[in-house]
């Protein structure tokens, strides 16, 4: 069973939850209050939703041997544009105006994703550099949109994206679930998943098999932009308002961490959207756990780092080998050299 690719991340998640349960026996309690589901587990899902979204987009980008550092800035831009539009409305509660705000924000995010895709697939700029441009410039754009201020909003329909409930369940969870479900369907029911894995797994073999890797690459950056845009709306709706400086700050790093924990390699190829969701939930659970255990604020980051390090070590085949070898020493032979026998 340890062979299953999600064995270690799921175990780590369960272990963390167990710690929570021991520290706070009521941790698993979910109750209905005022027609809302309520409890720590629901909080983890609700607060983890934006990271899940960004992580799903990032996973597809990474599958093609790419990376998208700009998602945090796109999150900020999305929220900023939506809130700017809403704040100018005579009636913020109007559904029509809210739809326009959401549409504008997502449209811009698609365009930003297309920009990244253009730099990478047409101009051939290395993904990390190409998206670094928007990562830096994007925060600036967000600040220009908000004029450096925090734009607060009151729109009811908009706020529902972050803190609303539908059939007892928080809307943000439903959105994350829908995006996860749809993208899983998209990659596994169409041939997209296979072709992305071929592009990332062996680009030259893909090209010689007739893959249009440029188009596919473009597509994943656009999709990544869209996911970041939805996450940005969610964060703004939860605030409620646009904070160009802090919305989505460092979320790209959390997303990369989430997909790595979920078993997708940064070198591209095989990916797992389910793994990314587990990874994102693990990160969110960790944050929650730190609060549950009452660890002082000043030590929070360090504790998180240690747990992440532990999870990564447990997942690393090299590390596991080494631990095993301690008990049964095997000479480190020249096996690595054997690769050179080509001629």
């Amino acid at each position: 069973m340890t062979k299953h690719r999600l064995f270690w991340p799921v175990s780590a998640l369960l272990a963390l939850l167990l710690v929570d349960l021991i520290a706070k026996p009521s941790f698993f309690k979910v109750e209905v209050r005022d027609g809302h589901l309520y409890g720590s587990l629901i909080d983890i899902l609700r607060l983890g939703a934006p990271l899940i979204l960004v992580g799903i987009g990032m996973t597809l980008v990474v599958a093609t041997r790419g990376i998208d550092l700009s998602v945090g800035s796109v999150v900020a831009i999305s929220g900023a544009l939506a809130c700017l539009h809403l704040s100018g409305l005579p009636d913020q509660d109007a559904v029509g105006g809210t739809v326009v705000a959401v549409g504008m924000a997502l449209g811009l995010c698609l365009a930003l994703g297309a920009w990244n895709g253009f730099l990478v697939s047409v101009l051939g700029i290395q993904p990390i550099i190409a998206t670094l441009i928007l990562m830096v410039a994007g925060r600036g754009i967000a600040q220009l949109i908000t004029d450096g201020q925090i734009i607060t909003i009151t729109s009811g329909p908009f706020r529902a994206l972050g803190s609303g409930y539908l059939f007892l369940v928080p809307v943000s969870i439903l959105i994350a679930l829908a995006v996860f479900g749809l993208s899983s369907l998209l990659v596994r029911k169409s041939a997209l998943g296979l072709l992305l894995e071929a592009v990332g797994g062996n680009p030259e073999a893909g090209r010689l098999s007739g893959l249009r890797s440029g188009r596919l690459t473009w597509l994943v950056y656009v999709f990544g932009g869209l996911c970041a845009g939805i996450a940005g709306l969610m964060i703004a709706a939860n605030t409620p308002g646009a904070d160009a400086n802090h919305a989505g700050l460092w979320i790209e790093l959390d997303a990369i961490l989430a997909l790595t924990i979920g078993g997708t390699k940064l070198t591209g190829g095989r990916f797992s959207l389910g793994g990314t969701v587990i990874g994102a939930l693990l990160i969110q659970t960790l944050t929650t756990t730190v609060y549950t255990l009452g660890i002082p604020d000043t030590a929070t980051l360090l504790v998180k780092a240690l747990v992440v390090l532990l999870v990564c070590l447990v997942q690393s085949p090299a590390f596991r080998d080494r631990v095993r070898r301690r008990r049964r020493p095997v000479p480190a032979t020249e096996s690595a050299r054997a690769v050179e026998v080509s001629a």
Binding site: A191, L194, A198, N202, E204, L208, G210, R212, G269, R270
Partner: peptide, 26 residues
């Protein structure tokens, strides 16, 4: 380096060219 995608399965490698010709939407 120019033929197979090692981490994909036999089936996936076999259909790769045909699938690439059809495009991902079909």
């Amino acid at each position: 380096t120019e033929g197979l995608v090692g981490e994909l399965t036999v089936r996936e490698n076999i259909v790769l060219a045909l699938q690439a010709a059809r495009g991902w939407t079909r």
